[in-house]
Each structure stands twice: as C-alpha cells, then as structure tokens.
Design a protein around this nucleic acid. Structure first.
Lengths: 230, 230
DNA sequence: TTCATATCTTAACTTTAATTTAACCTTATA
DNA sequence: TATAAGGTTAAATTAAAGTTAAGATATGAA
C-alpha cells in the first residue's frame, strides 16, 4: 500500500514516514501543496495523508484538485484537536476521514486500512457472446464453462473480436489494436497467432470453429449457442 | 446508527437528541451515570456521547465500566474546556474522541461518523480468498489454519494481490504499490521477493502454487479450496 | 553504542514460454 | 488455372520469469 504524506512539518512527516514503513506501507513525502500535486499526478497512491496548513497551495485546494482526477482515493486529514470546524466536517463525503493530533499509530493504521479498502471493491468485468465468456479482469475465456489458456496476443485478438461482435474486423485493424505501433504488418506473425487461437477455440467448442473469416474482408465471432438452451 | 446520549443537562440532552434525529440517527437519553449503564447493558449502541460531570456515577467511571464490556465502541466525550487535561488524554485508547462546548452540529456529525466507522474498520480486518486468510491488522497470513511468517515486502505483495482477487495484476503495478517511488523498476528485487513469497505460499498449500503468473500479463491468486469443504 | 540477525538489493545466470520467422500448403474466385 | 488471401508447421529468436548466492542495509537485542 502506497501512501502520500503531505505535511510541511519535516519532523512529523519523517515520523509518519518511518512509522508507516514499519507497518509495511510504502510512502512518498511532500512538504508543500505544489510538491504534493506533482507527486500525486506522477504516481499511483492507495491513500493520502493530508495536513491542511500547507505552504504554497492550501490543503483544501490540494484536496479539491486531487478529487478532480480521482474521486475514489481515500484522504485522511490531519488536524489539531479543537481545530475541526464546519469547513472540515463538511468535507466528509465518505472518501475522507480525519484524525486529530496527537494520534496513535494503531489508530492511523486502522483508518488507513478502511480508506484503502474502498478502492478495491471491484466488479468482475465480463464480455459475453452466446456461451462465450471473457473475463477481462482475469483475462480468461470460457465456452459453456470449459476454459482454455490463451497467450497475451491470442487473448488480445479474441477480446477485440468480442468487443466488436456482430461486426467483421479486418486483419489490419486487429493487428493495429493488439500489437504496438512499431510492428511489421507484412510479417505473418498475426497469421500464426490467429491460427492457434482459432484452433484453441474450436477445441473448446467440440471442434466447431468459433472464429470465422470472410475472404478479403476480415474475421468475426460466431454466436455459440448456450448448451443449456439447446 | 443508534447513539446513547449521556448528559445531565436536560436542555442540552434534548437539543442533542432532536438535532441528531434530524441527522438521521436514532438516540436514547440518559440523565445520570446509573441510568446510562442500565441503558448501555440493555441495548446495542453504535456510539456514545458522554458528559463527564454526572450525578450518581461520575462520567469517567461510566466510561471505564462501559469499556469493560465493550472495548470497541466509540465514545465522544463532551468537555467544557478546549485544553483536554491529562486525565482525559490518558484515557485515549483510540476509541474516544472529544468535543468541546459549544459545538456545531456539523462537527458533531463528522465526529460521530468517524467514531462509528470503527465498526466498519473492525469488520474489515481480514481478507479472505478461499481458505487463504490475511489479517490486515496483525499482518498475518494463514492457509487452512497453517501460518507463515512473511517479510514486509512479501506481505505487501500478497495483500495487494488479495485485495485484487479475481484480477491479474502486472509486475509493474505491484512494484508501484508495494515499493515507494524512489525504487528502480528495472532492478530484479521484485523478482527475488515474489520468488520467495511464491515458495512460502506453496509450502503452506502442500506444495501447490497459490500465486500464479500469466506470462506478459501478471500475477494472480488461485482460489484455494477450504479443506473442510472438500 | 556494538554485534547478531533479518531483510532487501544486486548481479549473474538458467529456464520457460511467447512470439516471430520462414518456408510451404490450401482454397476461393477472377 | 493463376493468383492472392488465408492456413499450417517447425524452428529460431526473444523476452519474461525464475533461481541462486553474495553483498548491502536495516533492525533489534545486549
């Protein structure tokens, strides 16, 4: 878990950094609002610890700016006891939490855990086409429950075809989307990949081709009937 | 959310009760320490608002007594002064917070939300994936009851994978979240760590790999069947 | 502090699997 | 039937991941 610590007090910043590292977090430190936003743009954080009294750019401005690009990230606001006023309280929209100084590290850890957890509530993203099912999170493929192991390129081709179901996709378009831009379009690497992909997919479907080609036009996915609905 | 209001000033008690009900909380009111403890034993509260100057049983005694049966419940202490004295500060075990009179309802609401979040935090200390269990508070790992000792980096990698169960995570993303930003992405430190982590996890699981890799894509956790459910 | 130990990083090397290449085959259709 | 698009196979290449040991750092106890 990577935490961005935004705190201008160098000693407290260091203390937080050392303490959190002991707890197993990795941390980056920013000492003013400007530095904070630069680091925030550059890296992927799981949570942010934010002091509101900052040089250069005010803490509340930093918070607003971060929220523009990331609605999900949890922000833990550090504030002195007696300092929590309506301004801060009003910010509590669920993505923020606050902690009053002085605090216990155990408490900080617990709150960070709660804040970071929210980012990982994820829906499983699947693309379906008849009984063909692609899980884009796991990059796995099943046909009527049976699964194959595909290589990265094979999966990439199949996913692009599945995204363009009910459409014929030219070999050029497939190569363009699955390979990076400096690939040689005239090599027959693509032919080899689509060959092995077609073979693997047919094996999953009792030997019947799922990926078809229309000469001179391109490739498309056949709709595979669900075995249960036969 | 049910709040127990312990406050002998009948007007303030009533004000709190009405105000909190407006905010969507349900409340019970106690006007002395004895009544407070009876209500506390009888009902399940999500947080307690406690004034320290109470008739019959002193507020601090009430707090101690409640702590005997419930270490976790959040207690918001109402105090007259801004400076929290040592006696009260010494009681701060993380489960308490303070609010000085006079206060704004917005602030009270924010603090109550922070206190009640504790229940959520507590409920989310473990990450389960089949029979693999991570305790994010203790940073411990078990598979079917058996446990391993992991280093910080190993635990960090495993936790990130566990939070992203049902997703393939690239080596780059893992490094990005487990190491801080000054790390050299091209070093093979990561490879060494994941190697030893994979080995330790497989040893826990009768030699069968739990952490798998898809070449060119990334790492993911296999679902480990619960031995009891076999 | 110092020393012992655990953890992390580095570097050289091995293994494995994906990808590309090249040569050849098949088939539709102009 | 000539030709170009597409299919097939095996081998070569390349890149990713795995492995080991040694050296550097950090951590914690005496």
């Amino acid at each position: 878990m990577k935490i961005l610590i935004i705190e201008d007090d160098t000693i407290l910043n260091k203390t937080l950094s050392i303490g959190l590292k002991k707890l197993g977090y990795s941390t980056d430190s920013a000492f003013d609002g400007e530095e904070a936003l630069i680091l925030f743009d550059l890296n992927q954080y799981d949570a942010v610890i934010l002091d509101l009294n900052l040089p250069k750019i005010d803490g509340l401005e930093v918070l607003k700016s971060m929220r523009k690009t990331d609605q999900l990230i949890g922000v833990l606001i550090l504030s002195a006891r007696c300092e929590v006023d309506d301004k801060i309280a009003g910010l509590d929209n669920g993505a923020n939490d606050y902690l009053t100084k002085p605090f216990h590290f155990g408490e900080l850890d617990a709150r960070l855990r709660a804040l970071t957890r929210r980012r990982f509530i994820q829906a499983n993203t699947t693309i379906c086409h008849g009984s063909l099912e692609l899980n884009t999170s796991l990059k796995t493929v099943t046909v009527n429950g049976r699964s194959v192991k595909l290589t990265k390129k094979e999966y990439g081709i199949l996913e692009y075809l599945a995204l363009n179901k009910n459409k014929v996709v030219s070999a050029e378009e497939l190569v363009e989307h699955v390979w990076d831009s400096n690939v040689d379009l005239f090599s027959n690497s693509f032919k080899v990949h689509i060959f092995s992909l077609k073979k693997k997919m047919a094996e999953l479907n009792d030997g019947v081709d799922i990926i078809k080609n229309t000469r001179g036009v391109g490739y498309f996915l056949m709709e595979v009937k669900d075995e249960n609905s036969k």
